[in-house]
Every structure is written in structure tokens, then in C-alpha cells.
């Protein structure tokens, strides 16, 4: 199993740092990015297996970006993280779109479990490549 490429987009530095530290400890290749606009540029250049997204960010909200990723990169999976489950429609959208979601704050185990569940569920041919 090759190293999986994960991109984390969050406007909070501590969250970025935490995710990088946790995921790298389990041998994932982790790129971090502090804004949605920057993230969009990065996605264009490199193909990621998983993108971890915060919902509330300046400039662009995570859900819009998630939709865009889904359209442009069908093979890439998205995990939404947020400490702010309001407004309500957000959670409704997440439920209806069957998005992967993890609420902040999380422990390293919770993040790793969520990530590994998504990776395992990915088609195997993707994994071989």
C-alpha cells in the first residue's frame, strides 16, 4: 500500500498542525493549506486521495469547495471537519449528501479512524495506482 496523499484545508493553524502531526504519525503524506483559494490552486497541481476541509473559512465555505472537488476530481474523497455545527442547514446538507464528517475537537484516534475508514472504502484500483 503506497503512501496516501492527504490535503488539509483549515484557517486555523493549530488545527492544521495537529492534523499534520497525527496523520504523518500513521505514514500519510500530508499537505496543509490555510485558505480555500490557496487550496483550489494546490488541487489543480496535484491529485490527492483525501482532502480534509473546514466548513467556516473566510472567502469560501467548505461545502461549496467540497462540491467543486467532487465535480472536478471524482476520485478524491472529502472529510468535513467543523467545530460549529450551526447553522442547521449545514448539517442537513452533510447528512443528505452523505458526506464524511468529523466534529471538532477530535482526538488523534478519532481522526485516524475516520481517515482510515474512508481510505479502506476507496476502490482498490485507486489504491494500486
Amino acid at each position: 500500500m503506497s503512501k496516501k496523499d492527504i490535503l488539509v484545508i483549515d484557517d486555523n493553524e493549530i488545527v492544521l498542525k495537529s492534523c499534520k502531526r497525527i496523520l504523518e504519525s500513521e505514514n500519510y503524506s500530508v499537505t496543509i493549506c490555510s485558505s480555500a483559494t490557496e487550496g483550489i490552486e494546490i488541487i489543480k497541481k496535484h491529485k490527492y486521495d483525501l482532502i480534509i476541509l473546514d466548513i467556516v473559512m473566510p472567502g469560501c465555505n467548505g461545502l461549496t469547495l467540497s462540491g467543486k472537488i467532487k465535480d472536478d476530481h471524482p476520485g478524491t474523497r472529502v472529510l468535513i471537519i467543523s467545530g460549529y455545527m450551526e447553522p442547521k442547514p449545514f448539517s442537513e446538507i452533510i447528512k443528505e449528501e452523505k458526506m464524511n464528517f468529523l466534529s471538532k475537537p477530535f482526538t488523534p484516534e478519532e481522526l485516524l479512524t475516520a481517515v482510515s475508514e474512508i481510505i479502506t472504502a476507496m476502490p482498490t484500483n485507486k489504491g494500486i495506482n
Binding site: S18, S25, E86, P105
Partner: peptide, 24 residues
């Protein structure tokens, strides 16, 4: 309440992460 929660959750994620990483 929501604002406070949001603001606290981010640093709390850091504290949780690094405490647990240290405990490993």
C-alpha cells in the same frame, strides 16, 4: 455560545492532539 464554542474548539483540537501524541 456558538462563537465561543467555535473559537475554543480549534485550540482544543490542538491540545487534544498533542496530549494524545505525547501519551503515545
Amino acid at each position: 455560545a456558538a462563537g465561543v464554542a467555535h473559537e475554543i474548539n480549534n485550540p482544543l483540537t490542538g491540545v487534544l492532539t498533542f496530549t494524545h501524541m505525547l501519551l503515545r
